[in-house]
Write a protein that binds this DNA or RNA. Structure first.
Lengths: 213, 213
DNA sequence: GATCGCGATAGCCGAACGGATGATGCCGGA
DNA sequence: TCCGGCATCATCCGTTCGGCTATCGCGATC
């Protein structure tokens, strides 16, 4: 029997038993799809994928504790005979999408997508195609067409301290730089995020998931 | 046949098809539990519950657009012959818990709970008991023992404007009060949230889901 | 080799912020 | 009836912000 014609072998990675059961139930309603393994975190995922050699991995981005879905995707894609990874998550954020795609994901769908879209997505990534939910695609297009912020590592670091309510002087001490430097970074952050105050920057940074709430 | 012995009739309310399928698959593995309806939003939920008269409703708190799970719970509990409502959600926040319980929910479990806990929870609320996930219970106990913040309506309003990056003067104009009043509210907010800057207040308010990200 | 982005630094200055203190009116519970 | 919480307003004052302008070293890009 030709493997390529025998149906697609899937592994599910999600920390919620309910979601895994749901995906399994939905997927197994399709004659050509088969769930060969489940994992609740990064370590389990790597183990299961090594053993079962699936065609496609359905990956949740938010895995609770430990490494997230993006990091896990990168690990899986680094294996010999790597599976295609289809990210299936709840939130749409530019940084989420970017990190997932950078990690080697072939698709990005949302959990509120109708089952049909999910099935089509699985088959498409198995064929080597790239699949994006329409919301996701729209967001990417919007970013490409408009001057994208793209904060530097240092700026993100500053945002983290900002959300902790630190004053410029405290941040400077924490980062071992002068207060002038902090202010300079802040000015860049404001400009990139299109805000004009620390409070606005914190809100927008959390909203865009640049920093965690 | 005694209805009480014939098994429990459930309705699932969640905006994610995947989660509904998962709950259905899990629940129907139990001989004494039966899913008699599904809904993806508040309007559907009320309709389905009116028609099917279930014993227990499994309610997601985050229903995307429209009324949230807490508001929907309140509506369902206001019906004649109201069902027991078991909230099943992802995040644990004091305000979420409080609003759900205030709305008349009999239980609060997390989606990452093992299926067994879910089944036990369903049977317990059907018997009229109250069920709380251990994390949830711990959080409630902690709040009861420590002086709780409890922001006023006006303070929450101020927080919203704060997250938009408005200056005190702008907030004052927006709310038709003097700048001194705004500063007074801010001082109370800082004290209640245990922060000392606008940025910190915004971060904590979002973290505690007092305002939307 | 010139240019560009990034991180770091500096000074200046007006505006905004945060703390402290105190006062008024209203409402509701003790 | 008195007290406490809430919303409102006010003044003072020291500190902090945020905008502006400008410089410098470095690595990458062209």
């Amino acid at each position: 029997m030709d493997v390529a014609e025998a149906g697609l072998r899937l592994v599910l990675v999600d920390d919620h038993p309910v979601v895994r059961a749901g995906l399994r139930a939905l997927v197994e309603s399709q004659a050509d799809l088969e769930v060969v393994g489940e994992a609740r975190d990064a370590a389990e995922a790597e183990d299961v994928v090594r053993r079962t050699q699936p065609d496609v991995v359905l990956m949740d981005l938010n895995l609770g504790e430990g490494p997230g879905g993006a990091a896990t995707t990168a690990r899986l894609r680094g294996l010999p005979e790597p599976p295609q990874v289809l990210v299936l998550t709840t939130y749409v954020t530019e940084t989420d999408i970017r990190s997932a795609l950078d990690a080697g994901a072939s698709g990005y769908l949302l959990k509120d997508a109708p089952p049909d879209e999910l099935f089509r997505g699985v088959r498409a990534v198995a064929r080597g195609e790239t699949v994006l939910a329409s919301d996701v695609a729209a967001l990417l297009v919007r970013r490409v067409n408009s001057p994208e912020p793209a904060l530097t590592e240092r700026e993100v670091q500053i945002l983290g301290l900002l959300a902790d309510g630190l004053a410029n002087k405290e941040m400077a001490r924490r980062l071992l730089v002068s207060e002038a430097t902090v202010k300079s970074h802040l000015a860049h952050i404001y400009s990139k995020l299109a805000v004009e105050s620390r409070a606005g920057a914190v809100a927008k940074a959390i909203e865009q998931r640049i920093i965690r709430a």
